[in-house]
Design a protein around this nucleic acid. Structure first.
Lengths: 216, 216, 216, 216
DNA sequence: AATGAATGAGTATTCATTCAT
DNA sequence: CATGAATGAATACTCATTCAT
């Protein structure tokens, strides 16, 4: 008989902290697929492998779950996204190329892309979330474009352009590609190759930013 | 001086032909505002000034009404829109300018802009409708860009570019502006001037399409 | 210019009196097929070739129409039915044979058979009608059996039997055959030949009524 | 003397297994009373002491509930009914007497009698269910009569008769009595004593099946 | 007399939410 | 912590009935 009591590690104990995240992850797919209203908590619970009641141990309501899904999906990725972009050395054109390529890889093909569409659809019903999403994701994302472009302007690589408009214009085709993937791409529409689409856009963008030739 | 005719306020007017359009118009606003699921037929009826049952005289179901709304909002505008563009005389650059400006005026600022967002949200839930929308609106819309650009390429105004990608890239900033108006614009986000945004985009686009200077 | 005004026979004038009957006739089929609740006035109107509103020119309500259908179907046939049976001369056994055969021909295969099933189904919901139907049809029908059987008893053709029970027992197989035709016969059930069924029943009945052989 | 245990009235009891039966039982009464269409699920739920939503935990639709009611009311009783009849020892006439008496006691006076009328009313609207009922109830019921009668024919107690017709003829008065109880009996019609009615029928039936006297 | 557009009360069904176990 | 049976408010849809024309 030993003095040390045998510690039984209950099989769920470890998961305690992870649960909300797991549930939100399960919900993410469904919300992205069907939208907020069309997603039934029954299905979320089933996909998460728990009972419907369990959802209410972690979230106050469907709306609360939705918010968690968005935050969860965003916060986990937004930081790493920015890290990748920060310490770039090289030409501004290359920076733009890198930015767009990375955005696609880090956001476009991940669930963050689905969240973008989701937020766009539900922005009206969840203004605070839309606000939050706008500040945390859109503004910061635009900020990356602004940084790259203003850097190019300063170095003379790019001509002088209005910095409140150009980043949005530059980002629009990338965002549209994301939205597309989660809406019309589902039904059998002629597929477009994202890499080609993005590189074509990038080169057009860079060309449109190039300064005028100086007359000799 | 004639006797004042006795005006009897009829419980309803016999205007069967006009009704479907009126009802669809009333539904359009609500669908755009709230989305498909969140729109109650009670409210549609109330806004149209009819009873709920009346809706079912003209539409088989909520879904059927939704489809009618889309068609109604689209067919009437798409056609006249195409006509205007067809008979254009002038440079291809000016054609692009005209195209984008007109699109904005005819669609962007109208409720058709809301439909675009609506369709994007509900595409997954109404695949057949998404298909329809894609064919009738998106493809035709892209077609206008394609026409303008390929025209410019032929005349040598523009350089040679892939015609499956460039129209979509060119239209993306315009579409994004529409989506924006019906999503994040609602909450107090710093407003952008559409005219400036569009003309900046247009000039960037034209510049990106310009052929290389020929060396003397 | 002649003094005698030209009399125009409007094309619907002649039908004025016939209308309620026509409408009830159209309704009969549907009521019999589907029952009271499942019959829609839309369909009745359509089958009658009139508008739904017209039904209300002749009947106060669906219930009223139902009652008319029943009365209409009954009164038109009940009299001629009795006429046929009245003036029989011959043996009581032959009278029974004639009664059953005629009942089948006059009622069983006509819509009165359908009404019987209808009344049985809806008796609870239309007590007055059930009462009426019971008095006018069932009692009188039973009366025919009672007459035939009591006649046979008086003449010594049949043995003495309780006259409150035997008519009903005797009629039951005939009634069941009618009900059958309007219920389970619809789905592909092995069909029975009515004539054989009825003659078998008749002979069994007559045999069961035959007096005991007198011991020599 | 123990302390009085605190009795908490539970909002609901965990009795999933018993529920479907309870609900079907509650529905049976109402369906029999009012028919399928006129029975509101609200009332079924109220009678069962549950909420309307609970019905949908166990049945997919009103129609599904209806089917369950039929099956529930039948399967439980048909089986035991057949058992009782199987092991009969005695004369075939006595077997017929026992059969009819038992049928009445086991089915006629129970709610199964009401189901018969219900099925007859709704057979047209639920063909598949009618099929089922025909096979499981009517055919098996007729089979009992057929067994008894063919047994008598083999032993020489009864004369030779067509076995496709006689069972139905024999059963008709019993079935009619059941139908009667649930239709015209409700309104104040002169009541008939079932026992007398049935025994009269039985004796008439047996007499009609008796073989001819052999001439000495 | 006849129409048929309009009505609105009535009902089956769904689903987020609760809570005794 | 976890369950899942139970709830009931919400809503799409039906259909008998009305009434201006």
């Amino acid at each position: 008989m030993s003095a040390v009591p045998k510690i039984i590690e209950p099989r769920w104990e470890r998961r305690k902290d992870a649960r909300p995240g797991e549930l939100a992850a399960a919900a993410l797919d469904l919300f992205v697929e069907r939208g907020f209203a069309a997603t039934r908590l029954d299905d979320v619970a089933k996909r998460a492998g728990v009972s419907k009641g369990t959802l209410y141990l972690y979230f106050d309501s469907k709306e609360d779950l939705f918010k968690a899904v968005i935050r969860e999906g965003i916060v986990s990725r937004i930081a790493e996204f920015e890290e990748r972009m920060k310490a770039y050395q090289g030409s501004s054109a290359d920076l733009l190329r890198e930015l767009i390529r990375t955005w696609w890889e880090q956001i476009g093909v991940t669930s963050l892309g689905g969240i973008t569409k989701l937020m766009m659809s539900e922005a009206g019903n969840f203004p605070e979330l839309a606000q939050f999403y706008h500040e945390e994701v859109i503004t910061r994302g635009m900020g990356l474009f602004e940084t790259a472009i203003s850097r190019g302007i300063k170095t003379g690589e790019f001509r002088d352009m209005p910095l409140d408009l150009v980043p949005r214009i530059s980002a629009a085709p990338v965002v549209m590609l994301m939205l597309w993937r989660h809406s019309f791409d589902v039904c059998g529409v002629k597929h477009i190759d994202p890499a080609e689409y993005l590189s074509t856009h990038t080169e057009m963008l860079i060309r449109s930013l190039a300064p005028d030739r100086k007359p000799a």
